[in-house]
Amino acid sequence: MEQGTVKWFNAEKGSGFIERENGDDVFVHFSAIQGDGFKSLDEGQAVTFDVEEGQRGPQAANVQKA
């Protein structure tokens, strides 16, 4: 798993970007967020995640709040 920080997340659209510790920013969709309840992330929040190849390039998967 990688570690990173939420660069921004739009709760209305359900997507945003995570700033990786090593590498380019990666797209995140709300469906990749693990946990119960409303799936959203806050700017500056620390997260851990896997990276998968999506239709438009790398994207975060199995996102967990650190």
Rank of each mutant, 00 (worst) to 15 (best):
1 M>E: 10
18 I>F: 00
28 V>K: 01
55 Q>Y: 13
61 A>I: 14
41 L>W: 04
37 G>M: 06
53 E>V: 14
63 V>L: 04
25 D>M: 15
61 A>G: 06
44 G>F: 03
45 Q>V: 09
27 F>S: 04
46 A>H: 13
53 E>W: 15
2 E>L: 14
27 F>I: 02
62 N>D: 02
47 V>M: 01
20 R>M: 08
30 F>I: 08
47 V>N: 03
62 N>L: 04
15 S>I: 15
32 A>P: 01
32 A>T: 04
63 V>M: 00
9 F>E: 03
13 K>P: 03
31 S>G: 06
19 E>P: 00
27 F>C: 05
55 Q>I: 14
34 Q>C: 13
35 G>Y: 07
25 D>P: 08
63 V>G: 00
44 G>L: 02
32 A>H: 06
56 R>G: 10
25 D>G: 06
65 K>H: 11
29 H>V: 02
13 K>Y: 08
28 V>W: 01
30 F>N: 03
15 S>W: 15
18 I>V: 02
42 D>P: 07
40 S>P: 03
26 V>Q: 02
63 V>F: 00
19 E>Q: 14
66 A>Q: 13
35 G>S: 09
14 G>M: 01
5 T>F: 13
1 M>A: 13
51 V>G: 01
7 K>Q: 03
9 F>L: 03
46 A>P: 10
49 F>G: 03
2 E>Q: 14
11 A>V: 12
7 K>T: 06
4 G>L: 00
43 E>S: 14
52 E>V: 15
51 V>D: 02
57 G>K: 03
21 E>P: 12
51 V>M: 09
52 E>G: 07
38 F>H: 08
22 N>C: 14
1 M>N: 14
62 N>M: 05
54 G>P: 02
40 S>I: 08
22 N>K: 09
26 V>I: 13
10 N>C: 12
48 T>K: 08
23 G>T: 06
28 V>E: 02
60 A>F: 01
45 Q>G: 06
22 N>I: 10
66 A>C: 14
43 E>M: 14
38 F>E: 07
30 F>D: 03
18 I>N: 03
45 Q>D: 13
15 S>C: 15
23 G>N: 07
33 I>K: 00
43 E>A: 15
46 A>Q: 12
8 W>E: 05
39 K>I: 06
13 K>T: 12
52 E>P: 00
23 G>H: 07
46 A>R: 14
28 V>P: 02
30 F>Q: 05
38 F>G: 07
62 N>S: 03
45 Q>C: 09
18 I>K: 02
56 R>W: 15
47 V>K: 00
53 E>L: 13
48 T>L: 12
60 A>K: 01
8 W>P: 05
34 Q>H: 10
46 A>L: 13
62 N>P: 00
62 N>V: 02
65 K>Q: 10
11 A>F: 10
42 D>I: 15
1 M>D: 08
49 F>H: 03
16 G>C: 05
45 Q>A: 09
53 E>K: 10
61 A>E: 07
26 V>S: 02
13 K>G: 06
5 T>I: 14
2 E>I: 12
66 A>K: 12
56 R>H: 13
39 K>H: 06
43 E>N: 12
24 D>G: 13
39 K>C: 08
66 A>R: 09
58 P>Y: 08
57 G>V: 06
39 K>S: 06
60 A>W: 00
29 H>T: 03
60 A>N: 00
1 M>Y: 09
40 S>H: 09
12 E>W: 12
62 N>Q: 03
23 G>V: 02
7 K>H: 06
31 S>I: 04
30 F>M: 05
59 Q>R: 09
28 V>I: 08
61 A>F: 12
35 G>K: 02
4 G>T: 00
6 V>W: 00
8 W>Y: 09
61 A>P: 01
39 K>M: 07
44 G>E: 02
24 D>L: 12
19 E>A: 14
54 G>C: 11
11 A>P: 13
52 E>Y: 13
19 E>N: 09
37 G>P: 06
28 V>G: 03
9 F>S: 04
37 G>K: 06
28 V>A: 00
62 N>F: 06
60 A>T: 05
6 V>R: 00
14 G>C: 07
19 E>W: 13
18 I>W: 01
51 V>A: 00
19 E>D: 06
53 E>I: 15
59 Q>P: 04
43 E>Y: 13
42 D>C: 15
24 D>V: 13
4 G>P: 00
28 V>M: 05
46 A>E: 10
5 T>D: 02
59 Q>E: 08
4 G>R: 00
24 D>S: 14
41 L>I: 05
58 P>T: 09
5 T>Q: 07
47 V>Q: 00
15 S>V: 15
21 E>V: 12
3 Q>R: 15
11 A>C: 14
37 G>R: 00
43 E>G: 11
57 G>L: 05
36 D>S: 12
43 E>Q: 15
7 K>M: 02
35 G>R: 00
35 G>C: 10
5 T>H: 12
26 V>E: 01
19 E>S: 14
8 W>A: 03
47 V>P: 01
29 H>Y: 04
50 D>G: 07
63 V>S: 01
38 F>I: 08
40 S>N: 07
38 F>L: 08
1 M>I: 11
37 G>N: 05
25 D>A: 08
46 A>F: 13
50 D>L: 13
52 E>Q: 11
57 G>T: 04
36 D>I: 11
52 E>F: 14
63 V>A: 02
13 K>S: 10
48 T>C: 12
20 R>H: 05
53 E>R: 09
30 F>S: 06
16 G>K: 00
39 K>L: 11
33 I>S: 02
57 G>N: 06
38 F>A: 06
65 K>Y: 10
22 N>F: 12
50 D>F: 14
7 K>W: 01
32 A>L: 00
25 D>N: 09
3 Q>K: 15
2 E>M: 13
29 H>A: 01
26 V>Y: 01
44 G>H: 06
36 D>K: 11
22 N>T: 10
15 S>E: 12
20 R>P: 04
42 D>K: 15
45 Q>L: 08
66 A>F: 12
38 F>Y: 11
2 E>F: 15
52 E>S: 09
27 F>G: 01
6 V>Y: 00
54 G>N: 07
35 G>D: 09
53 E>P: 11
65 K>T: 11
4 G>C: 07
30 F>H: 07
17 F>R: 04
35 G>E: 09
10 N>P: 03
1 M>P: 12
2 E>P: 04
25 D>L: 15
56 R>P: 07
61 A>S: 10
34 Q>Y: 09
63 V>R: 00
7 K>D: 03
3 Q>F: 15
52 E>T: 12
35 G>M: 13
9 F>H: 04
42 D>G: 10
17 F>A: 04
27 F>N: 03
57 G>M: 04
65 K>R: 09
63 V>Q: 02
20 R>F: 06
25 D>Q: 11
24 D>M: 11
58 P>G: 05
33 I>Q: 02
64 Q>K: 11
46 A>C: 14
59 Q>S: 07
28 V>H: 01
7 K>P: 03
41 L>V: 04
6 V>P: 03
10 N>G: 03
23 G>I: 01
60 A>E: 02
10 N>E: 06
37 G>W: 06
9 F>V: 04
18 I>H: 01
36 D>R: 08
34 Q>S: 10
42 D>A: 14
5 T>P: 00
50 D>H: 14
42 D>F: 15
43 E>K: 15
23 G>L: 06
41 L>C: 05
64 Q>W: 11
8 W>L: 04
38 F>D: 08
61 A>R: 09
21 E>D: 11
24 D>Q: 13
38 F>Q: 06
26 V>K: 00
25 D>H: 11
64 Q>Y: 10
61 A>K: 12
33 I>G: 02
45 Q>T: 09
30 F>V: 08
21 E>Y: 10
51 V>I: 15
14 G>I: 02
66 A>V: 15
18 I>L: 09
33 I>M: 03
56 R>F: 15
53 E>Q: 13
25 D>W: 14
21 E>M: 11
33 I>D: 04
47 V>A: 04
34 Q>F: 10
47 V>Y: 00
22 N>H: 11
54 G>H: 09
7 K>E: 04
54 G>V: 07
49 F>I: 01
3 Q>S: 13
64 Q>R: 13
39 K>F: 07
21 E>Q: 12
12 E>K: 14
38 F>S: 05
59 Q>H: 09
59 Q>K: 08
5 T>L: 10
49 F>E: 02
62 N>T: 03
17 F>Y: 08
23 G>M: 08
53 E>M: 15
38 F>N: 07
22 N>W: 10
46 A>Y: 13
30 F>L: 05
66 A>G: 11
46 A>G: 08
29 H>F: 07
12 E>Y: 13
47 V>D: 02
23 G>P: 01
8 W>I: 04
62 N>R: 08
3 Q>N: 12
2 E>H: 15
40 S>Q: 08
39 K>T: 07
32 A>C: 07
44 G>S: 05
36 D>Y: 11
10 N>M: 02
16 G>I: 01
28 V>F: 11
13 K>R: 10
27 F>W: 09
12 E>N: 12
33 I>E: 03
4 G>Y: 00
17 F>T: 04
3 Q>M: 13
49 F>S: 01
50 D>E: 13
53 E>F: 13
9 F>P: 04
23 G>C: 08
26 V>F: 05
7 K>S: 05
20 R>L: 06
26 V>G: 00
4 G>M: 00
37 G>L: 06
62 N>K: 07
31 S>P: 05
3 Q>Y: 15
4 G>Q: 01
36 D>L: 12
34 Q>W: 10
22 N>Q: 11
